[in-house]
């Protein structure tokens, strides 16, 4: 059984969360939203050098 989702105004955040842009992501996202193009965020590369 997967998660059930409770949608309620009580759980909606009404204040702006803190966010510090690190690049052009805000501008790019704005345009992606305007054009409704799906947006993929690629997180930091996980670099693993196996211990030999």
């Amino acid at each position: 059984m997967g998660p059930m989702f409770l949608f309620s105004a009580n759980y909606m955040r009404t204040t702006a969360p803190y966010y510090h842009a690190v690049g052009k992501e805000v501008e790019v996202f704005g345009h992606a939203y305007q054009n409704k193009i799906p947006f993929l965020l690629k997180g930091p590369q996980v670099q693993v050098n196996p211990v030999s």
């Binding site: 409704k36 799906p38 947006f39 997180g43 590369q45 996980v46 693993v48």
Partner: peptide, 18 residues
């Protein structure tokens, strides 16, 4: 709906297991 938008994220890895 016209306002619907899909956003996704993942962490790329270039080792096995990811």
């Amino acid at each position: 709906h016209p306002d619907f938008m899909l956003v996704a994220s993942f962490n790329p890895g270039y080792q096995r297991g990811f």
